[in-house]
Design a protein around this nucleic acid. Structure first.
Lengths: 186, 186
DNA sequence: TGTACATCAGTGAACGCGCGTTCACTGATGTAC
DNA sequence: TGTACATCAGTGAACGCGCGTTCACTGATGTAC
């Protein structure tokens, strides 16, 4: 049945929120649109009123995830005089490692996105650009921004992949990468 | 029909070779066992005489890929007095970026493996351990080995994800990460 | 303000398809005599 | 060395299942009078 325009917009946001969380947790091929819609309190048919296809849906879900990631970084700016340091500490924490559904879309989905031509790859690239720009602003050094982001993403992926089978190695990776990034500054 | 034991072993190796290549290129969920078996010159039914399940097959394919990666590094040892530098240069090249099927299993599959409990995650963890150990031997510094591997993996993943939509950024990432890793040494 | 009705967001059955896995069968291998 | 036959690697049809997508339908919304 029809719903109000405000409710329709809320439903759209719920679909994006659920997709952004479930795709980061399970990968683009690890969860179906029916399950995501169910998580958002809707049925799968309603998806195609809001999005053209699963790929377009996934791409918008990535935009949503990137927005939240950049907002988090900006929120540190207001409170903290070393916003990037706090961001890194949170990024390379066990909590963030163990909750990919609410974490970085790059670490969770960039490897997947590299194999998907079309809207997902384009969105992922824009997200990477945004993070490099955000880091560059805060480090005043684009090269340093790129190497910092690379190490954070790589370290988190290694820590996630080894968490189940070798917990101490996983923790060691988080701590070591965090330590290496903290050295140059204060 | 039955086949000689030597041929059966060759077939098994062909199955592993095809799987290791296609899984790295398309991800664990991006290609089916039937297509892999066809690529190896066999039918999908023959798989289950060699491997217990797709997950066990995928895990053995990872072992195969890691063996080839470590062999490559060892081959540099014999020829080169800076084997790790040559390895990094090859790793962060456009050729390696554009050919994930023959490249690093960590960069291609670690994010996928983190979501798969069982044999795949265990094998991926062992592969990560092996690379950290191999880097530690050649750098005499375990922490430096970990940060180097993290930056290489992260940089390659970012470069691959951005290659289609922003080729110049992708190249800039490869060059910047490579440059940062070359600075400390000679 | 109240009524009649066109609009359209959401539903859920149905579609074709490819997946991982099974299994009765085939026929070359390799052993026993 | 030659023959009879048990073994077993590989084949391909068939299975149940979940996928992305479509579409006739429902019924509340919101507009026209």
């Amino acid at each position: 049945m029809k719903v109000s325009k405000e409710q329709a917009e809320l439903n759209r946001m719920a679909l994006l929120e659920a997709a952004s969380r479930l795709y980061r947790r399970h990968g683009f091929d690890g969860v179906g649109v029916a399950q995501i819609a169910r998580e958002a309190g809707l049925t799968h048919g309603s998806l195609y009123g809001h999005f053209a296809s699963k790929d377009h849906y996934a791409a918008e879900a990535c935009v949503h995830a990137f927005k939240k990631g950049l907002d988090l970084l900006k929120r540190f700016d207001a409170v903290d005089d070393r916003p990037l340091e706090s961001f890194r500490r949170k990024y390379l924490s066990e909590a963030n490692r163990d909750d990919p559904g609410n974490g970085c879309a790059i670490a969770a989905l960039a490897a997947d996105a590299a194999r998907k031509p079309g809207p997902v790859a384009a969105t992922m690239t824009q997200g990477i650009e945004s993070f490099i720009d955000a880091f560059t602003e805060r480090l005043s050094d684009r090269e340093h921004a790129m190497t910092t982001l690379s190490m954070m993403v790589g370290g988190l992926i290694l820590a996630r992949a080894s968490a189940e089978a070798n917990a101490s190695l996983s923790k060691e990776l988080l701590d070591t990468v965090l330590g290496a990034l903290e050295e140059p500054g204060a």
